[in-house]
Computed example of a mutant assay.
Amino acid sequence: MSNHRKNVRTPLKVRLRIEHPLHGELILTTRDISDCGVYVLMDQAQDKLSIGERVSGQVQGLPMEAPILQLEVVRVEAMGVGLRFVRD
């Protein structure tokens, strides 16, 4: 399978707090990040998130409070989900 990604992924392991309208707060771990989004590890993601849903996310554990970003689910896999940064 070829990889036609426009943005390079950088491995990054941080805690990410996700706010979901139905499931509430989820604390997840990222796998990688790019200019356009982030991949988060999530057991049974297909039971929790659907493509097209929007969530808010905030990196946890930094020395200062990180901004809260809007994210859209663009990929759901058994290991986790791909989230695109929403830039309105």
Rank of each mutant, 00 (worst) to 15 (best):
R84S: 13
V86E: 08
K6A: 15
D47H: 13
N7V: 04
G61Y: 05
L16I: 15
T29G: 06
V76T: 10
L16M: 14
L26K: 08
Q60T: 08
S56L: 14
V81S: 07
L26P: 03
G52W: 04
V40E: 00
N7E: 09
R75C: 13
L12H: 05
Y39G: 04
D32R: 04
V86M: 10
M64T: 15
R31Q: 10
R31A: 02
V14P: 01
R87I: 13
G57Q: 02
L83F: 08
R31Y: 05
V59F: 08
L83D: 03
L83Q: 01
G82T: 12
N7P: 00
L22I: 15
Q44N: 15
V55N: 02
M1F: 10
M42A: 09
P21G: 04
D35H: 08
D32K: 00
V86W: 00
G61L: 04
L49N: 01
A45V: 01
V73N: 03
E25V: 07
G61H: 06
V74L: 06
M64D: 11
C36V: 14
L28P: 02
N7R: 03
Q70D: 14
L69P: 06
M79W: 10
V73H: 00
I68E: 09
N7W: 09
V73M: 05
G82A: 15
V59A: 06
V74C: 11
L69I: 15
L26E: 07
K13R: 14
L83R: 03
Q46S: 13
D47P: 01
T29M: 09
V55F: 08
C36Q: 12
C36M: 11
E77R: 14
K6S: 15
E72D: 11
L22R: 12
H20A: 04
S34D: 10
L16C: 07
E77A: 15
K48P: 03
F85Q: 07
V38Y: 05
A66K: 04
R54S: 07
G61V: 05
E77H: 14
I51F: 07
L69E: 08
R87E: 10
P21Q: 09
D43R: 11
A66Q: 07
E19V: 06
V76E: 00
Q58A: 04
V74N: 03
M1W: 09
V73I: 14
R17E: 03
